[in-house]
Structures are given as C-alpha cells and as structure tokens.
Amino acid sequence: MEVNVYSIPNCPMCNVAKEFLKANSISFIEHDVASDRQAAKDMIVKTGQKAVPVVEIDGEFIIGFDQDKMEELLGL
C-alpha cells in the first residue's frame, strides 16, 4: 500500500494526519508543498483544490483530515 501525504510545515491538520498514520504504524511519503513546487502543482491538478493536508492512499485522494475515510481505505 502506498500512502502519500501532501503537507506544509506547522500546519495543524497536516500534523494531525501524520500523527494518525504514525499512531497506526503506517509508513508514508511526505511531500512538502511549500518548498516542492512540482508536488504543489501535482496536488492542485489532482484534487482541484488549494488546501492541505491531502492524503493519497493507493491512488485515492482524501482532502483534509478524515479519520473515517482513512480507516476505511487503510482497512483499520
């Protein structure tokens, strides 16, 4: 399972999303969209929104922190 997190340093809800993954021992790749322009472009094109965090689980995008949706896609 591939999990990508598009986030910004010091963004409270980004930290919540990352803490949730860590608490459930799920490894993820983090993309800092504040410094990585290409990642920012990809995220905006794929989601149609300019908002973080975005959690991508096996190609499915979750905008914002949505615990129920994450648990469902991660099979928790």
Partner: peptide, 16 residues
C-alpha cells in the same frame, strides 16, 4: 471551500 475559501492560514496561506 478549499478553492479560495480557507479557514487555516498556517495550512493554506503559503499556496497563495
């Protein structure tokens, strides 16, 4: 919402 209306400056501010 999320396309110009945002409620967290520390999250989404830098994207503008």
């Amino acid at each position: 919402y999320g396309k110009g209306i945002h409620y967290c400056v520390t999250c989404d501010g830098v994207l503008y």
